[in-house]
Structure formats: structure tokens, C-alpha cells
Design a protein around this nucleic acid. Structure first.
Lengths: 247, 247
DNA sequence: TGGGCAGACCTGTCATGACAGGACGGCGAT
DNA sequence: ATCGCCGTCCTGTCATGACAGGTCTGCCCA
């Protein structure tokens, strides 16, 4: 067992379990472990990181939830076989702007970025009065050069002052929200349907208007229940199906 | 606080946290609590049920995961507003045959039920050799009389001897698997795409062949990693969108 | 009347300990 | 060589305790 890990920061604000989860996740994603290879046992991890078994279990539980590992009672934890599909729908970190790269070239082009007034739908999702200021983004996600996802996002302007002028190209919106505005996502609701694109959307996604696409509506909120993001996305599932892992 | 709860069985095999989760869930689903109403605090629940806070937290965590409740630090846990959509994709209990009823009349008609040999796709999903015996089910789910979901399921015959002759009408397949075969689901992988139905499927679902539907492929397994179920489902999202809650 | 502070109550994090039961390997007996 | 048993190691469950920090209410003072 030759793994080396960063020391966990006991004085910071980030919980130990989260730091540990990140460290393990980084190792797994580095490719150091192949599919179905065992991780160190819980007891070993408590020794290696100098934390309690509670912390280790919490970190591992999260990795199981994310589908990166699986656990078998009496045997241990193992690295899950690599998913070729992207866990976009079923993971918070898999949101439109925080898509995990799986050896694919992912680019994001911002088509529109403006201030506006929340319409009825946006207001209902974001739990704000209709007409309240929102920042609206329209972005096109490409995977290996192919259009893949077209997302229309609305965020309450009062939460993200200046976002309508920020540089967003190939940026993770969630990172930006976290660093600049202290927005920590806690949970999201998502609704999925099959839909046809209109003429404009079809052109952007380079499909015909009779191509069936996945439509995903989403609203996300912070730990204090404040809705900070609503989006509607069109996805070309003819290219890549959406994966959801249930743990 | 006038709630009455069943006593938890300390001598059985079912973990206390799971029993508690079920009890709370039953209360919530009975309608006794309205949306956003507070649950008893963790401390109160430990007193009421005579269990440790660990057990209470585990039960509540599971309910949060299922989207039935939400928690706010410093304030407590609250009943989530009732979802009108069914949590089919993102929940193990929301599998094709264990759909939660939300005040809707749900019926299931078995169209086909037979023994067969696993084809390449079934074999890959179930991790069995092609040609191995599988039980195949084709079922049509109706909600309020409207066709809603058409599911083709394959299960390794060696795990479910006699299932091809069992009475399945309006039965929960998961209940049956649990009671008769001791099959306990642990996790699942699911893939979602937009698709068109073929002529036969379109007729069953009462749509045209140019109606876009959601296609869901799924494989589920037990704690020992044995794949016990694979299905492909077509869903009419023109009727009801699919909901996924991220917690 | 309004604002600030303290205390009580809440969930979140973490440590420690114990026991149950599943998995696996080694050893001994047949 | 094979099978069964035992010991060790593993995760799962559960209890207990402590502390941090968020929330809310009531009280006191200006």
C-alpha cells in the first residue's frame, strides 16, 4: 500500500469527512486504482488519517452515494467500474455546470448572459415574486466538439450581484457561486421528460426539430432552503444516455 | 404532539433505524403532517422510541435521501411538500414495480411472463453467460386508467424459481422477491434516453410512433453484488414527468 | 418600541466503544 | 484432495458522550 495523502486540516471549516472524501476521490479519479480494486479498510483509513471510524464511514458513505465505490459486508470497499456515462441528473456535483470530465473534452459556450425579470415559471421555482430581478444564462455544452446540452439558467440577482457581467467561458458556475458568493448547494429537485426542440434550440444542438431530446427542469437550494438556481436543459441523449446511480 | 407509533422490534433482523424510518414514513404518508410541518426533534424521537440518537439520525438521513423530509441546522426536520410526480428513477423503492401511489389509481397488467434464454444485452447487464435461463416479464402500468409505463424485465431464473408461473397482477414485484426469494435490493444503475416506441409498444401505450418517450434501462443488485433484475422501460412523460430528488 | 444579548434548543461533527454477522483463509481430520 | 471448523478481518448496527455553530425566543435596556 503505497498511497500518500494530504494531511487533513483540523483547524479549517471544512469537515474532516469531506476532506477525506475528496482525498480518496482524487486518488480514485487519478486512475491509481483499477475497477474492483479494494480500498484500505476502515480501520486502516482511521490509522492513516488519524481520524475516527465515524469520519471514515461518512466519507465512504458519500463515495458510495456518488457511485465511485461499492461496499460489501465482510469484504471491504472497492472501486466501482468506471462509468462511461456522466452522472448529470442524479448528483449535485453533476449539475449543468459542474460536469465531471471522463476523459472527454468538455467546453461551454455562453450564448446569452443578462439581467431580466422573473417570469411566472422562474418565480415559482425560485420562490420569488414574479418580476424580481434574475440573472439569466444560456449556455451550450459540447463534449468532444459535439453539442450535447443546452441550458437556460436563472438565478436571483440579489444573490449573485454582478454575475451578468462575469466571464463564464469554460468555467464551473458552481465553483464561481461558491467562491464569489458563498453559495453552497445542499439539494435539488429535478424533473425529466422527453421533448422536441424548437427551431432555434435544434439549430444550436445540431439536430432536427423532430429529434426526441431529454428535457430536464431543475431547482437547487442552499442549506437554509433558499432557492439559488433554476434551469431548463435540453440534452441530446442520442449521443450519451444519462446515468443515475441508486445507492 | 399526539402521534402514536408502533414499538420497534429489538429481537428481529430488521435494523432499528429501518423500522423507525418506516414508522415515520408511514406517518408522513398518512397525511397526518402537512407540508413544511416540523417533525419531532432528534432528542424527542430518541425518547419516544427508546433508541440512540445514532439510530434516529440514520432513519432521518434516509428520509431526507428519499425526499420525504428536509432538515435545517438549528431548526429541525420538516415534511417536504408533497411531490405530485413519482420518484421512479432516483429511488430504489421507486422501481418499476414498487411505484408509490400518490392518491392515484395505479394498476399493473402482465402482458407476458415466461422463461427464456438471456440474450447478449440481458447477459451483460445481469453478469450471466448468454443463454442462461431468465424469467422475462412484460408489464403495463396504468395510472388512473391511462397507460403510463411499459416495462420489460429479466431476472436470472436460478434466483427466482417458479416466478414465471406466479400471479403478478397488481402485485409489487419487489415485495414478492423479498418475501418469496429473500432478495434484498441494495443499489441500481439506471440510464435514461429519449426514444420513439415501435408499433407494438406504441399501441400498448396508446401513443403514436412519433411520440417521444423516456427510455429507462436499469440493473439492480443485492448487497453481495449479485445482479437480480434488469429492465427496459418506456414511459409516457407527456402525462407525468419523472422526478429526481438530489439530497 | 426596537435592538441586543443570553439561554435554550436544534442539527452537524467527531470520538470511543461494543457487539453482530458476513467473508475468507488456514489448519486439521477424513 | 476435500470438507468443516475456527480464528481473524471486515462492514453494519448501536450506544454514549462531547462540542460547534445555527436558530429562536424572551428579557432587559435604551
Amino acid at each position: 500500500m503505497t498511497m500518500t495523502y494530504p494531511r487533513l486540516d483540523r483547524d479549517g471549516t471544512e469537515p474532516l469527512w469531506m476532506q477525506l472524501m475528496r482525498a480518496l476521490r482524487a486518488t480514485i479519479e487519478s486512475g491509481e486504482f483499477g475497477a474492483d480494486r479494494p480500498l484500505p479498510s476502515e480501520a486502516e483509513l482511521t490509522d492513516m488519517f488519524g481520524v475516527s471510524r465515524t469520519v471514515v464511514r461518512e466519507a465512504l458513505r458519500e463515495l458510495v452515494q456518488q457511485g465511485l465505490i461499492y461496499k460489501i459486508k465482510g469484504r471491504g470497499a472497492f472501486v466501482s467500474p468506471r462509468k462511461t456515462e456522466l452522472n448529470f441528473i442524479g448528483s449535485m456535483s453533476g449539475s449543468a455546470d459542474d460536469l465531471r470530465e471522463s476523459g472527454r473534452r468538455v467546453t461551454t459556450q455562453t450564448i446569452r448572459q443578462s439581467l431580466g425579470e422573473a417570469d411566472e415559471r422562474e418565480a415559482a421555482l425560485l420562490r420569488i415574486p414574479p418580476g424580481e430581478q434574475v440573472v439569466r444564462l444560456r449556455r451550450l455544452r459540447r463534449v468532444d466538439g459535439q453539442p450535447w446540452l443546452l441550458v437556460d439558467t436563472a438565478l436571483p440577482a440579489r444573490l449573485v450581484p454582478g454575475l451578468e457581467r462575469a466571464v463564464l467561458e469554460n468555467q464551473s458556475l458552481y465553483d464561481l457561486l461558491r467562491r464569489r458568493y458563498g453559495i453552497e448547494p445542499a439539494a435539488a429537485d429535478r424533473w425529466i421528460e422527453a421533448a422536441f426542440p424548437n427551431r432555434e434550440d435544434a439549430a444550436l444542438l445540431e439536430v432536427s426539430t423532430s429529434t426526441p431530446l431529454l428535457g430536464i427542469e431543475s431547482v437547487a437550494w442552499m442549506p437554509d432552503d433558499t432557492r439559488f438556481e433554476a434551469y431548463y436543459a435540453l440534452h441530446r441523449s442520442d449521443q450519451t444516455r444519462f446515468y443515475v446511480g441508486i445507492r
